Amino acid sequence: MLLAVAACAEPAPPTLTVRGVYVGPQFEGQAALVDHETIPGRMDAMQMGMRVEEPGAFDGIAPGTPVRLTLDSASLAIVAAESLPAGTPLDLAP
């Protein structure tokens, strides 16, 4: 019975999107410190280091910039980052 239910479950999407603020690079650009909003069903809003899967994902993005991140849904590694307009309202952890 459980196998039948599991077979009918929808597969996880290959990527997730989350917004936040780029705090800065870590480990020579292999990771980024990001203050991100809640990732529904995964984790609360927090500041954390996240592995950067694509070199140069933050090229041209200055620390302190609001960003939209595309994450690999399995590893939560950053696969893409894009700037959001300054002053974009974000729901970040206190």
Rank of each mutant, 00 (worst) to 15 (best):
S83H: 08
Q47S: 14
M46R: 10
F27P: 00
P25M: 06
L76C: 00
C8F: 13
F58D: 08
A9M: 13
T17M: 10
A7I: 11
V18P: 02
A9I: 06
R68W: 00
G20P: 00
A9D: 09
A7Y: 10
A77R: 14
Q47L: 13
V18K: 04
R42C: 00
T65E: 03
M43H: 15
E53M: 11
D91H: 15
G20W: 02
R19W: 01
E37I: 09
L2M: 12
F58H: 03
P25H: 06
V79Q: 03
M1T: 12
L90Q: 04
A32T: 05
T70S: 11
A57P: 09
M43K: 12
A4C: 06
T38K: 14
V67E: 01
P89I: 15
V67Y: 00
L3R: 14
A32F: 03
T65W: 01
I39A: 00
I61G: 08
A57D: 02
A81S: 07
I61F: 03
P11R: 15
S83V: 10
V21R: 09
A93K: 12
A57F: 10
A31G: 11
L33C: 11
A77E: 04
M46F: 00
F27S: 14
L90A: 04
L2D: 15
I78S: 02
V79T: 13
A45S: 12
R51V: 10
G64I: 07
P85A: 15
S75D: 01
T15R: 12
M50N: 06
V18T: 03
G60P: 01
D44F: 07
T65K: 05
A9N: 10
E28F: 12
E10Q: 14
G87M: 07
V18D: 01
P55T: 06
T17D: 06
P25R: 06
P55D: 05
E10S: 12
V21I: 14
V67R: 07
V23A: 09
P13M: 12
S83C: 10
A86Y: 05
L90H: 03
A74Q: 14
A77V: 03
P13D: 09
T38L: 05
S83Y: 03
T38Y: 08
P40F: 00
E53K: 14
L2Q: 14
S73D: 08
P40N: 07
Q47H: 05
C8R: 15
I39E: 00
G41H: 05
M43P: 14
S83N: 05
M48I: 10
T65S: 15
